[in-house]
Design a protein around this nucleic acid. Structure first.
Lengths: 211, 211
DNA sequence: TGATTTTTTTGAAAAAACTAACAAAAAAAG
DNA sequence: CTTTTTTTGTTAGTTTTTTCAAAAAAATCA
């Protein structure tokens, strides 16, 4: 029923609000006004208020926002107030690094398994997370449905694997492969293209030199 | 002299154009019109033409764009037509993974050294890239200036290290630490906040369920 | 209680991003 | 060599996003 579409510009800012509120929470600050927060975060107070009001009124006139409450409300909006289970496809350096990264777990993103094609990796485990053969993908997922599949495989294999994941009912892909995946409507893909990020940095270096 | 400021929305799209042109080049296609490209990339032809025209007229009426020429021109704009040297600060899993990733090298991003605080890592090497002590950072950089420093350290240490890097003349930081770095004007920072990316994915999963 | 603070909410203005349209140039066709 | 077609470069128009302003409401604080 909550049919209003929130612009992606707003969504992108939410995790940052959440982070700052987490920092405030840690330093024991109980309340904050949009004005104070705007100074810390270097955005306008108006934008903070408007962003938050997309989801409801979390503040109180004359008081501001309760840090802990707002922190948890944003977590709810972001869907990180519950467990999100993940599998990692691709047990190479990158996949293992992500499996190793315990910060994700603290946010509720729990990696359940790693899948890989190469026989020597199968059976290995990282922090207790087992590596299975890609052949077992379908049967494993049938028994253990997950929210998110993380793709850390070469782009040549990525589309085919994505198709298999979608066929197994996976509805969200965190894609590190350097291509644009084609998925049916209803499946969400979030891309992390590191080389593109690096190129943007490079552009800004180059652009500065020209001046 | 080239004082026109290009919007970051345009910059973000350039690497993607470059990638598609690279694919076309590999499949031996010599020319392409903005219309054909727009179909492949799922953007409007108008946007492609306008984006490119920010940097000059690379096409020809009645012909379209020469794939190879445009590919190299975009590379020039992005500053990836030359070597960009990097150091990685933080020799943990993530730092090592990035050092291992040879794709960056193919694009001209060459990692020269890794720096770390923990004694057991110092002296280790990844693909011939040596790990040095953080104590050696200043002296090493004095001898070997680099374009880009990659920060893959915990956020607690990140600002202090960034300050040291800036003091050594580093002008660009690729930041994986989960905080907003404060740097003087003239230093560029490109953030990769993986947990924020994951949260955006999580939001989209949660938002879909509500319908 | 009454003055003050600060959000909520609305509306409008300004800026940014995107799309559509078209003249001009080149290529292709006849 | 002329005409038609293609397709860019560029301008104008539209939509989206952001910023700004201000009234109303609610809570705080003295």
């Amino acid at each position: 029923m909550d049919q209003k579409v929130i612009s992606s510009a707003v969504i992108k800012r939410l995790p940052r609000y959440h982070r700052y509120l987490g920092d405030l929470l840690e330093s024991g600050i109980e309340r904050i006004s949009s004005n104070e927060l705007s100074e810390k975060m270097n955005v306008t107070a108006s934008q903070i208020r408007q962003d938050l009001n997309n989801f409801g009124g979390f503040g109180q006139q004359g008081y501001g926002y309760n840090v802990e409450y707002l922190y948890h409300e944003i977590a709810k909006i972001l869907g990180i107030d519950r467990e999100n289970s993940m599998i990692i496809i691709g047990g190479g350096h990158f996949g293992q690094t992500l499996a190793n990264y315990s910060k994700f777990e603290q946010r509720g993103f729990v990696t359940k398994a790693i899948f890989d094609v190469s026989p020597e990796r199968i059976g290995e485990s990282v922090r207790g997370i087992m590596t299975y053969s890609m052949d077992e993908l379908e049967s494993w997922l049938a028994e253990n449905p997950v929210e998110i599949a993380v793709l850390t495989i070469p782009k040549q294999a990525a589309q085919e694997v994505a198709d298999r994941l979608v066929a197994c009912g996976v509805k969200a892909i965190w894609n590190f492969a350097h291509l644009d995946l084609k998925v049916p409507k209803g499946v969400v893909v979030e891309n992390v293209h590191l080389s593109e990020s690096l190129m943007q940095l490079s552009y800004r270096i180059a652009a500065k030199k020209e001046k």
